[in-house]
Amino acid sequence: MEHKIKDYTRIKGWGVDADPENDPTYPIKNRTNEEHKGYSWERPPQQVVNMEILKSVERPNVSAVFGTSMPPSGLSGKLRRFAYQWSENTYTRWLTLIFADRVNEYEGIVEDIKSGNIPNIFAEKGWKAEWRLKPERLAIKIGTTAAIVTALLTVMIRKSK
């Protein structure tokens, strides 16, 4: 698979952006002393905060603009509120958020069912494409999953007897 270039200088554009001054510390070195003083800039107008925004404890304010997608709700929301009480430096924050994400996944399924939509997991996982492109691989996946579930159920039934 190797393909060594004999004369790389003939590659179109070779070296056009070569920069012997490319300093690894760029662009931090460009800062001014004024910028060491925290919020030294004229802040943009504040987007109206009319919904619950979970804010990092590592900043004093809500950013001037923010996303409004999916405010926290339910059990996952409670977990997220707890997580945001901790700094970005802590495992508590991030692991709780990952746990909240998993809880949120099941909340989503319940929400779908409540609104009369049974989630089409096959379609949501894009297995239609796999069926079209790699049917044998999909068959192996389904077969393996079915075998594992059957084995687990068999063990559980035997134990319960």
Binding site: P27, I28, N30, R31, E35, S40, W41, E42, R43, P44, I53, L54, K55, S56, E58, R59, N61, V62, S63, A64, V65, F66, Y84, E88
Partner: peptide, 22 residues
């Protein structure tokens, strides 16, 4: 406008994300 954008660090703006300063 923020100190980071002014340095050309447009991927590190301080006025666009309340949830995580990093």
């Amino acid at each position: 406008k923020c100190a980071f954008c002014k340095q050309g660090l447009f991927g590190n703006c301080h006025e666009a994300n309340s949830q995580a300063t990093a």
